[in-house]
Design a protein around this nucleic acid. Structure first.
Lengths: 232, 232
DNA sequence: TTCATTTCTTGATAATTATCAAGTCTCAAC
DNA sequence: GTTGAGACTTGATAATTATCAAGAAATGAA
């Protein structure tokens, strides 16, 4: 691994306050690789060999059963995935594929668990990350159990709008097929949901969305801080 | 707190290998209380004051927004809830109420975080518990994104049947309204879903369900070890 | 017991969401 | 340019799920 990469990784929350020796040991065992778009990194059901850290690009977590497939989450820099499986030394519950050219750090599970035991600071960072992931899934689950598809879309648009600086317009971060699956609907329904939101000032042109009546959109969406995250 | 209670709690996975002094300190600050049925213990949005451990009885985790309410999970002995909120020193994302007379251990958040820092064994147990909770929510989320209501019910029945000894019949552990909400449907729809499963050998009489054709029910349900848990 | 409450079920209907089948559009390769 | 693939949209239709209303069954208190 290059020195530049190392110092970059060292800055990540997960490793920042870690002991120097422990960090070096961890990195010695790790792989830092660049993957092209569309590369499947892990498959649900496989044993958790590595902890993954997305340093650049974007990774889609998805799951399938009985011929159906659903996008579970999108991991952006700097985020980890399948931390729980690594800690429990269990199988992955989700598959992962890159949805952009991505730089990914792969740390062998056993080394993560070793470092976890040896390095208290690392352990705390891991727990913080795991708790965050947990809360994110709970939010997502609430979103799905308590809202209709149109409401989920409306809230998602408000979220993107907020994150992108509240300029009155926003850019969808993923293609519509992926966004649809993430929101738990079919691509056809996403199209129609955008149509439903037209009277609320939502205008779509490709990946660009303009919100001309945020007040009425908000009235419809009823965003809830206990479901919709501020950051990211 | 009574000595008998103390020794019982000490046996729980979470505290088992904890240092004696640390355990004593934690328990000195804790409350061990019995609550009647239907008591609301926490409300989503409130700051996480306590970590809860259900020692006896049953607690329902639920969430609400915009006039709608959904059961998110049921916590049975011995299980914790809102661990992530406590560790992150954040607000609860879910509310909780007892759905039976319940004995609950309440440990002040700050004490949990202190013990977490001081006691490595406790920290490891906490992480294991948190990772398990995380994986449980992921499974639940997959269940909802990848299956129809009838499929969710069929798999749930198979799960209960397995847990209760595969005798050809099972007892629903919650009332049907709660079960419906847990499965993400209305009570009316649960009734109809049971009707749909009749041709697959599912006969309902109150809380008792008999499965006379498990093979055909399984063919319909298509249980998946990456969604449906073995234990519990 | 009786009454009242709650739980559960059933029917009718509406809303939501999915599926199937074009059709348009963009974009890149040839 | 032409072609073809993939993304997206739209319409028609079907399946799924929810809502509203009423009735049956179980439960519990007086």
């Amino acid at each position: 691994m290059r020195a530049a990469d190392l110092s970059e990784i060292r800055k990540l929350d997960l490793f920042q306050s870690m002991d120097e020796d422990h960090f070096a040991a961890l990195m010695k065992a790790a792989y830092f690789q660049t993957f092209p778009t569309g590369m499947q990194l892990i498959t649900e059901g496989d044993m958790a060999d590595f902890l993954f850290v997305v340093v650049e690009g974007c990774v889609e977590l998805f799951a399938a059963t009985n011929g159906r497939e659903a996008t579970m989450a999108m991991v952006k820099p700097v985020g980890t995935f399948i931390l729980a499986a690594v800690l429990k030394d269990a199988v992955y519950l989700m598959s992962a594929r890159t949805c952009a050219k991505s730089r990914v750090l792969m740390i062998p599970s056993q080394n993560v668990r070793n470092a976890f035991v040896k390095d208290d600071s690392f352990a705390r960072a891991i727990v913080s990350e795991l708790a965050s992931c947990y809360r994110a899934v709970v939010r997502d689950h609430k979103d799905h159990k308590l809202r209709t598809a149109v409401e989920r879309l409306a809230n998602r648009l408000i979220k993107y709008h907020t994150c992108q600086g509240e300029t009155g317009s926003l850019t969808l971060p993923y293609d519509k097929k992926t966004l649809a699956s993430l929101l738990g609907m079919t691509p056809e329904n996403l199209s129609r949901a955008f149509g439903t939101l037209k009277p609320y000032g939502v205008e779509v042109d490709g990946a660009k969305v303009t919100l001309s009546d945020i007040k009425s959109l908000t009235t419809l969406a009823k965003p809830n801080p206990l479901i919709d995250v501020r950051k990211a």
